[in-house]
């Protein structure tokens, strides 16, 4: 029996779950910011939100496009 799930489907699932977790954390930190002493440099740019969003979009694309049929 050959595999029926594509590697790109696995990649999509991983990216999607990471994207949601990271973007979700970013939104949480908007409401509950870290103290200035422990906040990373350039955290005011909110890289977690846009990087997490990008991963979510990519993950969604790969998950849907390579989903098992």
């Amino acid at each position: 029996m050959r595999e029926s799930l594509s590697i790109w489907f696995f990649s999509g699932i991983l990216l999607l779950s990471y994207g949601l977790l990271i973007a979700g954390t970013g939104f949480y930190l908007l409401a509950h910011p870290l103290p200035k002493s422990s906040a990373p440099v350039l955290s005011q740019l909110h890289p977690d939100i846009w990087w997490g969003g990008l991963m979510t979009a990519l993950g969604l694309f790969y998950t849907v496009k390579f989903r098992p049929r």
Binding site: I22, T25, L34, P40, S43, D48, W51
Partner: peptide, 12 residues
């Protein structure tokens, strides 16, 4: 990594 990445991104 520690300089730029906060919770979540650091785990990544």
């Amino acid at each position: 990594m520690v300089r730029y990445l906060g919770p979540g991104l650091l785990g990544l």
